[in-house]
Structure formats: structure tokens, C-alpha cells
Amino acid sequence: MEGSRRRFIRLAVVGVGAAGITTLFSSKLIEAVGFSRGDVRAAAPARRQWVMLIDLKKCDGCRKCTEACNTEHFVPPGQEWITVYEVQDEFGFRYFLPRPCMHCENAPCLKVCPVGATFRREDGVVLVDHRRCIGCRYCMAACPYDVRAFNWSEPPHTPEELAHTYRPEAPWPHRMGVVEKCMFCAHRAEEGELPACVRGCPMDAIYFGDLREDAVSNGREVLRLSETLRRDHGFRLKEELGTEPRVWYLPARRD
């Protein structure tokens, strides 16, 4: 009968333990076997580190960048992957602030994703795999820049959009129940093209380029990034959060 007592205790301990451990191991095991993440991540070459520079002095708030972006990616209605905010500072001075995804080096959205649907390529581009996303929207809650949008219902489709084959670097056709955001035009970078918003900006306010090469371009001129940032007081949004954005700004007016 000594045995039955033991069995009871074992049942108790094993029961609680097993519940925790199976959950833990199922994910760890599968990761070890290689089902997880690795596949998508290694895809991009690490030679580049993509960055953006937005000159607020030049931006006149026409929102042509948003338009170009919407067309390029068949962005579902109601969403903006690059939003132009109108800002008023404490002296009443008004200016415009275009905000794409910051592609943070220390991305809060990426940390919280329970299934690794949000991932970061070696070239610094943060992407969402819509085939894996479960739509928990934790990443939306975590993003300090209000970047992410959700497909609350099935987005309207066009034949052209549907003809395309989905991949995270060119994320359409769009689908219901997943999270969307700016993907730094990863598909255009593959072709050596500047992002749609850079091309769409009539003021040439948006620059795109490579941190390694220390060069950014708006399609008209090429700037040395480090020097421009130093000379023109470049800054990043919410620098104090430590997210290390890959998008820099030049202030709206010279002090």
C-alpha cells in the first residue's frame, strides 16, 4: 500500500510538470529540428543594411508617398503603410512628418510575436509572414510608432493582385485576419530599385540607402548619411525607447 501513496504524489507532481514541459518542448524541439524561422531569415544577403532618411524641411504634406505606396502594394483600403502626420510644435510651428515602418534593430513587435511570423532579415528589414501570423495583434500593441495595420475583414481584390504569388518580401494577395505593414519595398530593393514612396515624392524628401555604404539617395542626389546626420542635426523618433530605428529624420527647420 506504500505504493499507492507514492502513486498519488507522483501523479500530482508529474501532472503539473508534464503540462508545462510538453508545451515547452514541443516548440523547442520543432525549432531544433529546423521547421522554424531559419528558412525565411537567411533569404536576404547581409551585405546591405537598408536605411531611410526623411528630410522634413522638404516635405509639404502632399501625401503622394502614401499614394504611391498604396498603388505599389495594393494596400487594402483604410490602411496606410506610410502615414503623413501633421505636427504642431510648442511654438505653433506646423510641419509634416511621414512615418513608414521604422524597421527597428531592437524591434518591440518582433520580440512579442508568439509564432515568429514577424521576423527580421539579415539586411535589417522587418517583415511579416502572412502565412504564419495567427492574428493575435500583440505586435500592434507593442509597436510604439503605430505602424501596424490589421485586415479586419477580407480585403477587396483585383485580378492583378490575385495573379501575384505571395511572399513576405512582396506581401500580396492580402488576406483577412493578419497584420500588415511597410516592408521597405524589399521586392524593389532586390531589383536595385528605390522604394515606391521615394519615387513618388515630388519634393524628393525621402532618401533610401545602405548603412554599410553610408550612402542614401532620393533618386536625384546621393548623400553621405553620417555626414548629413551630423551637419543637419539628424534624429530618430522616440530615440529614448532604445528601439534603434533604421529611419532617420532631418528637422523641419534649421535652428
Binding site: 503540462a19 508545451t23 515547452l24 501570423c133 493578419v178
Partner: peptide
Amino acid sequence: LGRPDRLMNVFFYGRLESAILWDFISIFT
């Protein structure tokens, strides 16, 4: 969930870095 049909992804691709996984484990326990 936006995609309840993909709930099993939490088991297939679960990342322990996410607090949602911590929840899964502790609530199940």
C-alpha cells in the same frame, strides 16, 4: 484571434521570447 484556424502554429513555431507563450504554458499548467 484573427486566424483561429492557425492556433496550432503556437505549437509548431512557438517562440519562448513572447509573453504569449509564457501565458500558454502557465495557464495550461
